[in-house]
């Protein structure tokens, strides 16, 4: 079973494996950085250091990217491959467990940040946020 934290952004669900989650905190002010890529528009403070803000909306058709000064209600601090992100979202739902056999290549929820999707309840199929692939893309300057 895979443990999943459902993230909510503009009413849409996105699945994040709880293995990546370090902390869920409230809305955090962040500082835009010039010439940063649109998916990582700035940094915010966390435990005495600056961590990159990961804006899922900037990678999603139909969602409004973060604008400078905008703070979403929740921030999920997540890590992969020694990179830590602050992921601003509108809400998070209760952690759920999904049988790994139900994780399938994306068909219904094609998004640049996900290669797979999974059901998080009886009515909702959500893209599975692939942080490791994003880190690899960002490190090489590629578009996700």
């Amino acid at each position: 079973m895979l443990s999943i934290l459902p993230l909510i952004l503009e009413g849409r669900s996105i699945a994040l494996a709880t293995d990546h989650v370090l902390e869920i905190i409230g809305g955090q002010p962040w500082v835009p950085l010039p010439k940063a890529r649109k998916e990582l528009p700035g940094v915010c403070a966390w435990r005495g250091r600056a961590i990159a803000v990961l804006d899922i909306a900037a990678m999603s058709a139909g969602l409004k990217p973060l604008s400078p000064g905008e703070v979403r209600a929740r921030t999920v601090v997540a890590t992969v491959d020694r990179v830590t992100f602050a992921v601003p979202v509108d809400a998070v739902h209760e952690v759920c467990s999904v049988d790994e056999s139900r994780i399938v290549p994306s068909r219904l929820t094609e998004q640049a940040f996900a290669r797979h999707e999974l059901p998080i309840d009886d009515r909702t199929v959500a893209p599975l946020l692939d942080l490791a692939a994003l880190v690899a893309d960002f490190s090489h300057g590629a578009e996700p």
């Binding site: 950085l33 010439k35 090489h140």
Partner: peptide
């Protein structure tokens, strides 16, 4: 003084390295 994570600018050199 916090270092800007290198992933923010990827393989290029950004104008702000710390904040």
């Amino acid at each position: 003084v916090a270092t800007v994570p290198s992933i923010v600018y990827g393989s290029s050199l950004g104008p702000v390295r710390s904040v």
